[in-house]
Write a protein that binds this DNA or RNA. Structure first.
Lengths: 218, 218
DNA sequence: CGGTTATATGACCACCTGGTCACATCATGA
DNA sequence: TCATGATGTGACCAGGTGGTCATATAACCG
């Protein structure tokens, strides 16, 4: 099974699978840790033990390397969505939100570095073709949550004194926080889900859903 | 009134107020836009129209410049808290949360670049003395929300099947999102509070509080 | 084997970085 | 007016950046 890409050279595509994977892994690691601009090609080749010229035979330039990695990220996301979630208008809204949270958590659990790269793109304003890249991602938010939220509201599962924009804002915010907390816990307010087993994790998500549904009031 | 700092040179402190402010403003702008490592001293001096050597007579090195700016940030935060909020155990919990949100929003409205610098520190893992800096900030979160949340729970204003950690996690997450959305709206899920007048903004916050209190259920 | 093409290499380039310092300019006070 | 100390300056440094390319090595095939 050949690797799918629109930007890597044929030389790279014909590389031994093992070497290929090592290169991808190291590029992902470096871009995840440093973002686009701060990422160092010298560091990448040093860690791989290959010459810089070699890397530049595989990819035209730094921007292409980044885009290649991003391509892989998009592919993984799409695969995860296909496998993990099936939109079902009839199911309870909060059950569906729950499913989305679990799918998203599974993704960042499996591919934390790829998720970090996504965060880097969100945060770094001078990433090449940033707008275009982000437009490709709007997964949990627009393509997914948008329709889900609108449907839920029309079906009366959501109080009608809450605007759709606000619903999306809060849900998206909570999920984002959940994922970021998973890969990069802050000292102050962490659920530490990444330290838990599957069962506790499920319990944590349950609690969040409960809050979203019924609020904090005692 | 002399500027308060523990790191700037006396030469800088004796500078004409106007020049001083211009320098502070430009450093804040650059660090806010680029973070610590990517920030360029050459850019700063070019934009200011002064020699690099001059800047290095005001501050020992880049790290000192960054710390100086951070010092100012902390000062502004403390002032804002003093003015904006008074902890009141007897007031309704959600009313207090509301007050915190408004105070925080006012801060990022007045000092968006300083808030950006805070975000940069949160996100950039190789900022010098990062842990120490972040420890000084835990404002809305630990020093503030922690006691508030615990008190609210003990007084039964919060449902007792929600853990304190979860309460802090969700509140902190929502506020964080609110502030980030204010200075750096995402295309997909933005409330666009920054485009609104004071009244609409108040309405937006009200809606959030309502959701936190009673949840989304229709 | 020889010949030809594909891959690997690292010295090298121009450019930028944070930082220095000998020197120029200015202000002050006698 | 002149001397002294404070302030301003930018050429310069070592080190890092993304990127190139002539050359060396390997792989393949007749």
């Amino acid at each position: 099974m050949k690797i799918k890409t629109t930007v890597a050279s044929s030389t790279f595509c014909n590389l031994a699978r093992q070497k290929q994977q090592a290169i991808v892994k190291e590029m992902v690691r470096e871009f995840a840790a440093q973002g686009y601009k701060k990422a160092s090609i010298n560091t990448i080749v040093k860690n791989l033990g290959i010459a810089k010229g070699s890397l530049y035979q595989y990819f035209k330039n730094k921007e292409t390397m980044f885009y290649f990695v991003f391509e892989q990220f998009i592919r993984l996301v799409k695969d995860s969505i296909k496998q993990g979630v099936s939109l079902d208008d009839k199911a309870d809204f909060f059950v569906q939100v729950r499913k989305v949270m679990e799918t998203a958590l599974n993704f960042v659990d499996r591919y934390p570095d790829y998720f970090q790269i996504y965060l880097q793109i969100l945060f770094e304003h001078d990433v090449p073709r940033r707008r275009e890249l982000l437009a490709q991602v709007r997964l949990f938010s627009r393509d997914y949550f948008g329709p889900l939220c609108l449907a839920a509201r029309e079906q009366g599962r959501i109080r009608d004194d809450v605007s759709p924009a606000m619903l999306i804002f809060v849900l998206d915010g909570i999920i984002d926080r959940l994922l970021q907390d998973y890969v990069r816990p802050l000292v102050d307010s962490s659920l530490e889900l990444q330290k838990m087993g599957l069962k506790e994790r499920t319990g944590g998500i349950d609690e969040i859903i409960k809050i979203l549904r019924d609020g904090f009031r005692g």
